[in-house]
Each structure stands twice: as structure tokens, then as C-alpha cells.
Amino acid sequence: MKAPSFSYARPGSLSGVFELLERHGDRARVLAGGQSLLASLNLRLSAPELLVDIACVPGLTGITVAGDKVRIGALTTHRQIERSPEVARHLPLLAQAVRNVACAAIRNVGTFGGSIALADPAAEYPACAVALDATFVLAGRAAERRVRAREFFRGLYETALRPGELLIAGEFPVSGDGYRSVFLELARRRGDYAMVGIAAHARTAGGRISDARLAFLAVSGTPVLAVRAAAALEGRPPDARTVAAAQAALGDELEAPADLYASRATKLHLARVLLGRALGALAR
């Protein structure tokens, strides 16, 4: 199928972007890497009047470390994240997660910002951002504001982005001393969206786990931070009983709606298995 007709603009500045977004309102869509947007247009799932390509807006690409924060520009590609020594050093969770994103040709073009703004519930970055308590930088015509990842994802493909706003970067706290990260997902085939995944980040000292942030993907309309499971682990060694208690707690906090290939029961079961494996890996 071919995309419906639309216009295309490639402004060279943020103000140019805002101007177009303001003029066209919800009939305009922002085009970053386009790896999801263009597929949905080719399927005629949406029919925007205008695509605003932000590729030529300066300052949206790159990974920089400043103090205890890693800033990832919205137009940074999966490939750049995959190859970044800064990400490998400071954000091992993201470094593990990116390997699960699609395939090489898509990783070359798809962007960090595009993935976050689309907010696919089975995508890797949103769960990582929630686990790591990242903050997103949202720019509007008037001002910039910062929204915590944990407040950004509102519902299925729904985010805190307001009309006319553009997500320009994510800011991640660097991984602290004594913290470890594990990203695991179950996908039927390599590069597929996950059936269930977990982004786990916790302090592991003296065989005990504390400050665990367990963000699940593909179990709800948004990434889900499993706080009850984390509470069940707090300050304990991940022995069989503790792990079982954490796994049991997931039943109360994961909605796990059925999809084409897995029922709620299956998803919940798989989430529990992944939690067990993630805890095992954290403690190792």
C-alpha cells in the first residue's frame, strides 16, 4: 500500500518547527527517523496533512555527559547509542536494551526521541527511562520544560507532550556506584517487539538488593514500574523465597492484557520468569 498524500517541510531551526506545528495543529506530524511513522503511513493508518522533518534542526543529535547526567539528543540513532562508549559506561541498561531494537537497517535510522515520543508499550527505551528515572526535555515555542519519564507515559501511545511541543532530549542519571542493570526480553524472533520485557536496575551490595527499579514492557499501555515487587526485595538477598514473593507481587501490578499470541496468564507468567532471571543476573 502507498502512503496517502501529504506535504513535507524540513525546517532548519526549532522555531521553524514550532511555527509549522502551530499553524497545522494536529494535522501535522513530526518526522524524526520515521521508522514507525512511515510504516504506519504506508499502511494508511493515519493521514497527516504535513510531515515536519526535524532532521535539519541543529543540536538534536548526540550523547553528552555533563556531571552526573547523560544527555541523549532526540535524533540520536539506535546505532549511535549502540556504539556509544558513554552509554556503555554510564548507562549499561540502555546499552543492553538497544541490542534488542529491530535490525541494523532500522537501527541506522530510528531515533531515541522517535521511540520515546511514539511510546510503543513494547519498546525498549521507555521502560529503561522509567527504570533509570530519566527526565525528558520538552521544548515548546515559549519555553522548555522537563518531565520525568515516570510521568511522561500516560496511556497507550499517549504521552505528556502537549500540542506544539517537541521532545528534544532525554537526561539519564549516570549509573551509581554499586548499582547493576539487567535488560531481558522475550521476543519470538530476534528484533521483534517483545512479548514481555524487563528493565531492571538496583543496588547490589553484600548479596542484598536494594533500591530496585523494575520496569516492565509490553505488559500494559505504558511501561510499568513494579513497585510492590521492588518492595518485596528491598534489603534482602534474592533467595528463592524473596524472589517468589516479588514474583507473586507482580500479579497485583501488571495488567498484562492479552495480545495475538499470549493470554494475560501467559504474559504474567513470563513476566515472573523474567523477573526471576533478572534478579539472578543482578545478584551474580
Binding site: M1, R10, L31, G34, A39, I106, V109
Partner: peptide, 29 residues
């Protein structure tokens, strides 16, 4: 497929492989 899954349209843009069906010709300007 024209939805980015099959890879039959893979070409190189500025030296990197991409899905030809997931890039507009005008983007490649």
C-alpha cells in the same frame, strides 16, 4: 511489504543501510 519488515528494499544512504520503504525520497535530498 512496505512496512519495514522484510528488508527486500534495503539500500545504502550515506554509507549506512536503510529500509528504502521507510525513508521518503525527499528525506534523502
Amino acid at each position: 511489504c512496505e512496512h519495514g519488515v522484510c528488508g527486500a528494499c534495503t539500500v545504502r544512504v550515506d554509507g549506512a543501510i536503510v529500509r528504502g520503504c521507510l525513508m521518503l525520497a525527499v528525506q534523502a535530498n
